[in-house]
Simulated scan of single mutants.
Amino acid sequence: MKDKRLRDKLYNATDQDLRFTKEDRNEVFEQIHKLEKNNIKKKTFGYSSKKFAPLTASLLVVGLCIFLFMPSILPGNFITENKEGNASESVYKEDAFLTTLLTVKDDNNRVPINLLLTYSKDKKTMKVLSIPRDTYAPILDKHNGTTSYDKLTFAYDYGSGGAENVRTTVSTLFDLPIDYYGVIDLETLSSMIDSVGGIDYDLQEDIQVRAISQVAFEFKKGTNRLNGEEVAALIMDATVGRNLNEEDQLNLINAVVNETINVLPQTELKQFMTQIEGDLPIEKLLENKMELPSIQSVSLIDGMIDTKIDDAYYIKFEKDFLQSVSEELTTFN
């Protein structure tokens, strides 16, 4: 505990020094990435590794559904627009599903966490995909109408596009319509977690992970009491498979839901939820409950291609791989 307090003190003492320019921060993160790569197996293109987690009767399932979905808004027929702009019935009509993008935004308007969720009402199944912040993605500049490729983390602030721009970017990347989207500030997430005294999470070994407001966090093996940014940092790590994996990601979400959404008084929870930017029908989401027997994690790890462009680090994906992921997200057997 003494070492942890000393480490936290050092982090806090240097926090101001870590608020560099965009170029300086990118350079620092580049160095962190190089260190992390020493502990990562080289990734090659292939089909995604998907881990099915049976969570029957789990509070995670109930909590996520209260937070993100409402049965009455699930369309009977899923409608999209074709390239000519005309409405057409989707190929997924037989298995109606709902898509939602949940994003966490830091105080620099960057989006380190992007969770794409699909839900089948008939199958009562949810699928979750976490997208790396460094993903090489098509981002629309609303000022001039042009699309440029950059890191997904910049999508919110790119051309002052905001939350809707994040949805457009992810939708274009996966060629998948997104019905609802919500952006929550990291500060709000942290406040939610702090309001219940933090989240307990067990780690199997000592690890160092990339952080958001500072360079990195170090965690000791065993039970760690986490704040909002620490939770986000661990989810980011699990997204790219550095120290953690899909199971850890689901367990972290489970812990957040159990300790906040299922514990906070309804009035306090509503106050936090109203701070979410986007088009989620917050009031109705909090009033409706759903039963969901299972949740499945869909991973991008097997398709990640580490890439350097103009000395900047990106994660790229082959088009065919992204198509296979979209099919997995929208296929409910």
Rank of each mutant, 00 (worst) to 15 (best):
D3Q: 15
K22E: 13
N26W: 05
V28P: 07
I32M: 10
E36G: 14
N38S: 11
K41I: 15
S48Y: 11
P54E: 12
L55C: 13
A57F: 15
F69L: 09
L74Y: 10
F78H: 06
T80M: 11
N82T: 07
N86F: 13
E89G: 13
V91E: 12
V91W: 12
D95C: 15
R110Q: 09
T118I: 02
K121Q: 09
D122K: 09
K123T: 01
S130V: 06
S130P: 02
Y136H: 03
P138A: 00
P138M: 01
H143L: 14
L152N: 04
R167G: 03
T168C: 10
T169R: 00
D175T: 10
Y180G: 01
I193Y: 06
S195V: 13
E205N: 11
S213D: 13
E218G: 05
N227S: 11
N227C: 10
G228C: 10
G228E: 09
E229L: 03
I235A: 01
A238K: 06
N243G: 08
N245H: 12
E246L: 15
E247W: 14
N258H: 09
E268A: 10
G278K: 01
K289G: 14
M290P: 00
I295Q: 08
I305C: 00
D306A: 10
K308G: 09
I309Y: 10
D310F: 05
A312H: 08
A312R: 07
Y314T: 02
I315S: 05
